[in-house]
C-alpha cells in the first residue's frame, strides 16, 4: 500500500501577539503516493523539524498534515506507527547500546501483537541485507553501515507505507552510503514506499528523489523537480545559491 502526504501551513509559534516567535513560519507541500520527496536547506532551516512534526514526535504545531487523506492527529497511535516510521541520522545514537538487534526488532512486534516474530525479524534483516545471525549482536559489534541497516530494519518491521528519512547516510562513508542508498531504492521499487528524505547533499537528492523542497528559515522557498539541479533551474535566490554551491563543489561549473 502506498500513501500520499499533504502538509498545509505547518507552523510552530511560541508566545502570542507581538512577542510571538515563529520558529517554523509555515510549511506546505504535498507528496504523491510512492514518490521520493527531498527536503534540503541549511542547518537550522527546519528540515528535520518538519519530519518530527509529521510523526508527532513534536506535538506543538498548528496546521494540517494529511497522510493518505487522513488527518494525522486523528490516526490512533498504534495505527500511526504502522503507517509511518522514521530512520534517524546517526546510527550510533539511535540504537540502544545495551539492546541486541533481536530486542530492538521484537519490541514493536510485541507492542503491536503481531504473530510470527521470528519469521518477521528474519525477513526484516534479510531485506536490509544482513545475515540472520546478526539478531544476537549488540550495536557495538556492528559497523556504522550495519547499524544503519538495523535502524532501517526496525523501521520496516511494522510494514509501514511511509518512511521518514532524516539524513540517513550523512554519518556514513561514501562507500557505505552507496550501499544504503541502493537498499532504499530497491525497497521503494519492491514495496512502493513513499519516502520523505531530509538531506543536505544535492547529489543524493539527484540520485534518489523525484522532487525536492528547498527550505530557508522554516519556510519552503521553492519545490523543484530533480531535473532542475544540473542546469540550476531554481528561481528563488537562496535555492539558486544552494544549487550553484553544490554544482561548484562537485566541480561542474
Amino acid at each position: 500500500m502506498t500513501v500520499s502526504v499533504e502538509i498545509r501551513d505547518l507552523a510552530i509559534t511560541f508566545g502570542q501577539g507581538l512577542s510571538a516567535v515563529r520558529v517554523l513560519p509555515g510549511v506546505s507541500f504535498s507528496v504523491a503516493a510512492g514518490e521520493c520527496f527531498g527536503l534540503v536547506g541549511e542547518s537550522g532551516s527546519g528540515k528535520s523539524t518538519v519530519l518530527r512534526c509529521m510523526s508527532l514526535l513534536t506535538d506543538i504545531w498548528t496546521g494540517e498534515v494529511r497522510i493518505g487523506g487522513r488527518n494525522v492527529r486523528d490516526i490512533p497511535l498504534k495505527e500511526r506507527c504502522r503507517l509511518m516510521q522514521m530512520v534517524f541520522q546517526d546510527p550510533y545514537g539511535s540504537l540502544h547500546p545495551r539492546q541486541s538487534v533481536r530486542t530492538v526488532l521484537a519490541e514493536p512486534l510485541r507492542i503491536h501483537g503481531m504473530d510470527n516474530h521470528e519469521a518477521r525479524m528474519n525477513r526484516a534483516l534479510t531485506d536490509v541485507g544482513l545475515p540472520v545471525s546478526f539478531l544476537d549482536r549488540f550495536p557495538h559489534q556492528l559497523s556504522g553501515g550495519q547499524r544503519q541497516r538495523v535502524a532501517i530494519a526496525r523501521a520496516l518491521i511494522l510494514e509501514p507505507s511511509l518512511l521518514l528519512l532524516d539524513e540517513p547516510t550523512s554519518a556514513l562513508d561514501v562507500s557505505v552510503q552507496a550501499e544504503i542508498l541502493n537498499l532504499l531504492n530497491r525497497l521503494r521499487e519492491e514495496r512502493g514506499f513513499t519516502y520523505i528524505m531530509v538531506t543536505h547533499d544535492l547529489a543524493v537528492v539527484d540520485h534518489m528523489c523525484d522532487r525536492f523542497a528547498v527550505m530557508l528559515h522554516g519556510e519552503v522557498t521553492e519545490v523543484l523537480p530533480r531535473a532542475a539541479i544540473p542546469g540550476n533551474g531554481a528561481t528563488h535566490p537562496y535555492a539558486r545559491e544552494l544549487i550553484a554551491a553544490s554544482l561548484e563543489y562537485e566541480g561542474q561549473l
Partner: peptide, 20 residues
C-alpha cells in the same frame, strides 16, 4: 576507483551505485 564510483553525482544515471 571504487570510492569514486560509489559517489552519487548530480546529473548522473540513477542506476544502482557501485558498491566497494
Amino acid at each position: 576507483r571504487g570510492l569514486l564510483a560509489a559517489q552519487p553525482r548530480i546529473g548522473g544515471p540513477r542506476a544502482p551505485l557501485a558498491v566497494l
